[in-house]
Amino acid sequence: MKQVNRPHLHESLNQIIVKKDKLEIANWIETMELISNELQYLIPLEKRLLGAPAVNQSLLTVQRENQLRLGTLYRYERTMINAIEYDTTECDAYYLHAHEKNRDGFMDHIKTYTALKLTLLSKILERF
């Protein structure tokens, strides 16, 4: 997880918020990349141990969603380069809305993935 540097007194509130948001986005991306790596193990594990088509399909769906969301976060991270340059209320509202939308999507995805992972692990435990 990325480390937060203390804000400097010469930075504006907008600069501090943008730095915080960029850090948060980097942490989301790191988490999504870890999920992607986990899925590379969970999918074959499910095939070998359970062979349950419904669970396998759910894993593949989450894997696809993970890749799509990761792409969205990479694009969003690139747009944050311009965030400091624009200091208008309209721009602030746009970035706030975009950030909240991405946060909500990330959190929903984490909840879905976690529930699926727990379901998979519990089914493996039941079987063995």
Rank of each mutant, 00 (worst) to 15 (best):
85 E>D: 14
30 E>V: 01
10 H>P: 00
82 N>T: 08
34 L>M: 14
119 T>H: 14
95 Y>N: 07
36 S>A: 06
115 A>W: 08
48 R>Y: 09
38 E>F: 09
70 L>D: 00
114 T>K: 13
31 T>P: 02
108 D>G: 01
114 T>A: 06
98 A>I: 02
18 V>D: 13
90 E>G: 08
21 D>A: 08
122 S>L: 14
70 L>C: 01
108 D>E: 09
66 N>P: 03
37 N>K: 10
118 L>N: 12
125 L>P: 00
88 T>G: 11
51 G>T: 04
54 A>P: 06
32 M>G: 00
91 C>E: 14
31 T>A: 13
21 D>S: 13
34 L>K: 14
17 I>S: 11
9 L>T: 01
128 F>D: 09
121 L>S: 06
88 T>E: 07
104 D>W: 02
94 Y>C: 10
64 R>F: 05
72 T>H: 08
85 E>F: 11
41 Y>W: 05
99 H>A: 11
121 L>N: 15
67 Q>Y: 02
18 V>R: 09
70 L>G: 00
105 G>D: 03
5 N>Y: 01
79 T>M: 03
102 N>I: 00
76 Y>E: 05
35 I>V: 10
110 I>W: 03
58 S>G: 10
83 A>L: 02
39 L>D: 12
43 I>N: 03
83 A>D: 05
22 K>G: 09
109 H>E: 02
33 E>M: 08
27 N>E: 15
86 Y>Q: 12
79 T>R: 02
115 A>V: 04
119 T>A: 11
4 V>C: 05
116 L>R: 02
118 L>W: 06
108 D>N: 07
109 H>A: 02
56 N>T: 14
85 E>S: 15
92 D>Y: 13
97 H>M: 10
50 L>S: 04
17 I>A: 14
53 P>A: 15
48 R>E: 12
13 L>K: 12
22 K>A: 12
33 E>N: 06
113 Y>K: 01
44 P>E: 12
52 A>W: 06
11 E>R: 11
5 N>W: 03
59 L>S: 10
84 I>C: 07
67 Q>V: 00
4 V>R: 13
89 T>P: 07
6 R>N: 03
103 R>V: 03
2 K>I: 11
88 T>N: 09
105 G>L: 03
117 K>L: 03
106 F>M: 06
29 I>M: 07
53 P>M: 11
21 D>W: 12
30 E>F: 08
19 K>M: 07
107 M>S: 09
8 H>S: 05
96 L>K: 15
41 Y>V: 02
95 Y>K: 04
128 F>N: 14
57 Q>V: 04
81 I>L: 15
89 T>W: 11
66 N>K: 10
64 R>D: 07
91 C>N: 15
24 E>F: 05
38 E>H: 15
126 E>A: 15
84 I>L: 10
100 E>K: 11
102 N>M: 12
125 L>Q: 10
42 L>W: 11
110 I>F: 04
23 L>V: 01
20 K>N: 14
62 V>W: 00
50 L>K: 05
100 E>W: 03
32 M>T: 02
35 I>W: 03
73 L>R: 03
13 L>Q: 08
24 E>D: 13
120 L>R: 08
23 L>R: 11
116 L>V: 01
86 Y>R: 13
90 E>T: 07
67 Q>W: 01
43 I>S: 06
60 L>D: 15
75 R>H: 02
127 R>D: 04
34 L>S: 13
1 M>W: 01
73 L>H: 04
17 I>E: 14
67 Q>N: 09
